[in-house]
């Protein structure tokens, strides 16, 4: 039985990961740490775990691994502390707010001899797994272009503060697609151009929409919308879509569109009810297995770093008004 703790419930994905831990037969969630006691105690109660306010006591409470879901800017400190305690780590995306932080985290885990994974659940979505497999089997031939979106509703809270999130919608909603494209095509990003702004009146001190253009090695061209552009009244949280233009054909995927339309008079709302695969469960199961086998999770810290390189380049591009190299 692998004992996995959750470090901070600042990111809402922590609740889904915690539920997965409780559902997995080979894992338990014995301990929760949070620097917000109220939030931490409530989460501990909900998932039947012990709450720790002291980080050291939490890290040395007999855990095998931790899932880090703090505010983005705290990822580095959390990961470094957990690595020092010899724990396997799954870190929420983006891995870090800067390339320098991401590199330091990877180095710390390497030094401590612990596995570091980045939480990219898209890699465990059955829809995107099929896209990956069909592209890798050569069904589309060479991929020439990709047009993507990761739209969402405005998350508010610390996401709206670039001091805690490291950026805005472009920071929040570029990494999933960047990682998915690397995984699907096997190519790396080389150049990035970005136009972004606070254009939708969201209550943030950063951008609420970014239009990102990228180039991958071999010349594949990519466009992407990273946004908090979904209306509050939109029937779902957002989307991940990718259109691939290949030599042998075109593929369009709307990764989370396996849904029912729910029209409810009690709430006067129209919402989507998902019936598709549970990508979070795949992600957490993979992590638990990595902890047990003492090897790195399938989606590594390096994968997280590659995506952070893209977001950092996007912000650098927006600042300079130029297309910039990913490896500065």
């Amino acid at each position: 039985m692998m004992k996995i703790g959750v470090m901070s419930f600042a990111h809402m994905h922590a609740y889904s990961y915690a539920a997965c831990l409780n559902d997995l037969p080979k894992a338990t969630l014995p301990a929760v740490w949070d620097d917000d006691p109220k939030r931490g105690k409530a989460a501990a109660k909900r998932f039947d775990a012990a709450y720790f306010s002291d980080l050291h006591r939490f890290l040395y409470s007999g855990l095998d691994g931790v899932i880090v879901c703090s505010e983005n800017v705290k990822h580095r400190k959390m990961v470094e502390a957990a690595a020092k305690a010899g724990l396997w780590i799954l870190c929420e995306k983006p891995l870090a707010v800067t390339v320098a932080d991401a590199r330091a985290m990877i180095a710390a885990c390497k030094k401590a001899g612990v596995g570091l994974g980045t939480a990219f659940p898209c890699r465990f979505a059955p829809t995107l797994i099929e896209v990956h497999d069909r592209v890798r089997a050569g069904e589309l031939g060479e991929i020439y272009a990709a047009s993507c979106t990761n739209n969402g509703k405005f998350p508010g809270g610390w996401f709206a503060d670039e001091k805690q999130a490291g950026g805005g919608a472009t920071m929040d909603h570029t990494v999933h697609v960047a990682d998915a494209l690397r995984w699907i095509t096997g190519k790396e990003f080389v150049k990035v151009y970005c136009e972004k702004g606070r254009l939708l009146g969201r209550d943030t001190n950063s951008d609420d929409v970014g239009s990102v253009h990228m180039e991958m090695d071999g010349g594949t061209i990519v466009s992407h919308v990273a946004s908090w552009n979904r209306a509050k009244s939109f029937p779902t949280w957002g989307d991940v879509t990718i259109e691939l233009i290949g030599e042998k054909g075109v593929l369009h995927v709307d990764a989370f569109s396996q849904k029912l339309d729910v029209y409810c008079d009690k709430t006067m709302r129209h919402e989507w009810a998902s019936w598709g695969g549970n990508a979070d469960m795949g992600l957490v199961r993979d992590f638990v297995e990595a902890v047990r086998a003492r090897h790195a999770p399938s989606v590594t810290g390096e994968d997280g770093l590659r995506a952070v390189e893209v977001t950092e380049a996007a912000y650098r591009s927006a600042e300079t008004g130029k297309m910039v190299s990913v490896r500065a």
């Binding site: 020439y144 151009y193 136009e195 972004k196 254009l199 239009s211 253009h213 061209i221 466009s223 919308v225």
Partner: peptide
């Protein structure tokens, strides 16, 4: 051919 264009308007509005 496949073209992906970002227009930045004088008003600041972004169009892809």
């Amino acid at each position: 051919d496949y073209a992906m264009v970002t227009l930045t308007l004088k008003s600041g509005v972004i169009a892809q």
